[in-house]
Design a protein around this nucleic acid. Structure first.
Lengths: 210, 210
DNA sequence: AAACAGATTAACAATTTTGTTAACACAAAG
DNA sequence: CTTTGTGTTAACAAAATTGTTAATCTGTTT
């Protein structure tokens, strides 16, 4: 006899979990509340019992994952006291790993932002704040290192966008990249491991003096 | 028998045009046939008259735009007889311009591929074929130039993915990038112009010997 | 002009999806 | 052991979306 048979308080979190999966995979419009409920193993009435509407459930997911966009950007730049080059190497790697651990987060965010521009205008602002504080530091550091002749004077904003572009693409466009690489790799993760190294080199290469 | 359109202009193409916009913006699930009809300036019955179902209309759009994915990859590498470096510069620029002229095509394709993996498995194959023939040439050329000491020996596949990553991202993630750049530029197109140059340099920098 | 054929519309029907309600189950407290 | 409150369910209702039909219009053909 399982004690979790009827009155289990974890149905709410089960719904959230199932909803996250559904929303991430199919987007807001494509997600079906019935499908979410089925995945969670409950009636779809429960979904309304806990979250009133599909919209409010979606908002719960959004606000929960919103901080991750922040982390996604922040993880691109290390925060310790290593030499700049090493910090950037670590930053790129951490950023790559972060996206790897949240593979469909970028696509989801981009999608919902473009199809509901109003709903998430807050995010645009917060993105700006994060990027601003991030870039102010990075920009100053690069200038300092460049003045000392240790690296080229590259634009911090462009460098940040380079990092995010290179790291996000192999996950966001995974099905297409998979098609392009064909059978050159055992599996996709093997390719990703190489890609991570390649991205680090590409970024550091932009800083090298030659 | 040549006179196909009896009454109004070509409503069929107007519907197709409106449908493309709707599908590209909101994806298959988010698109509304009524909205498409309204944009086209006709009753939504016309949509069914010409295309039976939403599904068949979608397929029409897909097959029509499918060749563009091909072009998108092919445009990444020039096809004339300039020196390799110049060819790549031209290729990157043409690729950038192509995406710029089809700004939401990448997001659309990626989305539909991930939410209907079965429907478009053909594309995975064709992508592979294109990439294969493209890379075979590029790979040989890079090796040749590298042997002559004109450039570093970089992996052609990685270079291709670099190009596509860097060029696609500022369009695919436009709302987020817009947030990040804040008020550093007059408008987004001004940023894009600089970004295009930056991408060319980033790619060519990977080939330079130092 | 009459007949004809494709194009168009409005009203309607079917289906899908979301949201609600009322009854029921069960554990804990009085 | 009743009461009480929350969790649960099935059946229902409402809304939204897709798909259909029959009647109408318009240009073309005979």
């Amino acid at each position: 006899m399982e004690s979790e048979s009827k009155h289990s308080k974890d149905t709410e979190s089960r719904i959230l979990q199932a909803a996250e999966k559904e929303f991430f995979e199919k987007g807001y419009a494509g997600a079906r509340t019935a499908s979410i409920a089925e995945t969670a193993g409950v009636t779809h009435a429960m979904l309304h019992y806990y979250f009133r509407t599909k919209d409010r459930l979606f908002e719960k997911i959004i606000s929960g994952k919103m901080g991750l966009l922040k982390d996604m950007l922040l993880s691109a730049i290390g925060d310790n006291d290593l030499p700049l080059e090493e910090r950037i190497r670590q930053g790129v790697e951490r950023h790559f790993d972060f996206i790897s651990a949240n593979r469909n987060l970028p696509r989801f965010i981009v999608n919902e932002i473009t199809s509901h521009p109003d709903r998430i205008r807050i995010m645009e602002m917060s993105t700006r704040d994060i990027a601003d504080s991030l870039l102010k530091n990075l920009h100053a550091e690069i200038d300092e290192y460049a003045a000392q002749g240790h690296c080229k004077k590259v634009d911090a904003l462009m460098l940040l966008i380079d990092i995010v572009s290179l790291n996000v693409f192999p996950f966001m466009a995974a099905p297409i990249v998979k098609g392009a690489i064909g059978n050159r790799f055992e599996n996709y993760d093997e390719f990703l491991a190489l890609r991570k190294k390649e991205n680090v080199e590409t970024i550091l290469n932009k800083l090298k003096i030659h």
